[in-house]
Amino acid sequence: MNEYSIYWIKEEVANRYFHKSDILMRFLKEYEANPVRNDLKAQYRYVTRQISFPRIYSHLKKHAPDNITVYSVGKLIYIYRKNQFMLLQVENGILNFRCQNLQEAVMLLFPMLYSSYPNLFVQGKNINDYGWISPITQKNNDRTQVLYSYR
């Protein structure tokens, strides 16, 4: 399974760095590697908002379509639909999740996050994928989701 982290980026920073996701990715990797550095810690607090377990779990339960099951066991959140399955966990204000491929997250998780979490940045932990989870856009009356991902 692939592992990913979702960061809730403050709106001001998201607006500035939407088209500079490589800079944001490098910063987040640097902070993860050196979380005790005071300069990085201060920048991280300026850039991100904290995701809380009770709030995200409640939000996912409320916004889950009828064909998706969301439940928790302890501090783990499970999302299930037919043969698709995801495991989520909030750690230090970051939403970490595991899935077979990012397409599962695009189909199961991301649509439930848009309404309350508009500026989310996803980054692979064991895979070199990263990018913005963008809101659903309208194109020629087709609803399409976009994940800006760069390798």
Results as ranks from 00 to 15, higher is better:
Gln89Tyr: 14
Leu60Thr: 00
Ser116Thr: 01
Leu95Pro: 09
Ile68Leu: 13
Cys99Pro: 11
Ile79Met: 10
Lys75Gly: 10
Phe97Cys: 05
Pro118Met: 12
Ser72Leu: 02
Lys61Arg: 03
Ile79Thr: 08
Phe97Glu: 03
Asn101Gln: 13
Cys99Arg: 11
Gln89Arg: 12
Cys99Asn: 13
Asn67Trp: 15
Gln84Gly: 13
Tyr80Pro: 07
Leu109His: 06
Lys62Leu: 11
Lys62Gln: 15
Lys82Tyr: 15
Leu76Tyr: 04
His63Phe: 14
Val106Met: 04
Met86Arg: 06
Glu91Trp: 02
Lys82Ile: 15
Asn83Ser: 11
Met86Phe: 14
Val90Pro: 02
Asp66Phe: 04
Gln89Gly: 14
Tyr117Ser: 07
Val70Tyr: 01
Lys75His: 14
His63Ser: 08
Arg81Tyr: 10
Leu87Ile: 07
Ile77Phe: 04
Asn101Thr: 15
Lys61Glu: 08
Phe85Tyr: 14
Lys82Gln: 14
Leu108Asp: 07
Met107Ile: 15
Asn92Leu: 03
Asn92His: 08
Pro111Gly: 15
Asp66Met: 02
Ile77Pro: 00
Met86Cys: 08
Tyr78Pro: 05
Arg98Glu: 09
Gln103Gly: 00
Pro118Ser: 09
Ile68Ala: 04
Tyr78Asn: 00
Val73His: 03
Arg81Glu: 08
Gly74Tyr: 01
Ser58Trp: 08
Ser72Val: 05
Phe97Gly: 00
Asn96Glu: 13
Leu113Thr: 08
Arg98Thr: 06
Pro65Cys: 14
Arg81Asp: 04
